[in-house]
Amino acid sequence: MGTGLDSFSNPQDIGALYPFVGSEVLLVVVGIVLWLAWHVRQIVIENQEYRRALELYQRVGMSRVLQQGGTESLADEQALATSGSSDTGPSAGSESATGATASPTGSRHSATSDAGGPGRPESAAH
C-alpha cells in the first residue's frame, strides 16, 4: 500500500512529490466550494451579530450606550436581558431604570448584581 512515492533513488525521474497524484482537480473543486461557503457563513454570522447588538441597544437606549466609558459601562447581555424584563418600558435608558450607574469603577458589575442575574464571570466579560 502506498499513496505516492516509494523511492528517491533516481531524483531525475521524480516529478510530483505529494501523495494521491491525480486528485488535484477534485481538491480544487472542494477548495473553491469551501471558500465560497466561508464567505456566506461569515456574512450570516456578522448579520446575526448586528441584529443582536441592535436589540440590545434598543433595550438599553443609545444615549446610555454612549455614556461615559461607552459600552464598557454596560452590563453584559445576559444581565441586561434579566434587568430588561423588569424595565418599565423599551426606552429604559436612564440609569435608574436599569439599576446601573456609569460610575468610574464600571457599572458592569453593579448592573449585574442589581439585576440579580448571574451574568458572565469577569474573565468572560473581559
Binding site: 451579530e49 448586528y50 447588538a53 450606550v65 459600552t71
Partner: peptide
Amino acid sequence: PRAVELAGLDAHEHSP
C-alpha cells in the same frame, strides 16, 4: 448599522 457604528464595532461582540 448606525447604532453599531456609534457604539463601536467591537462593542457588542468583543470585550473592551
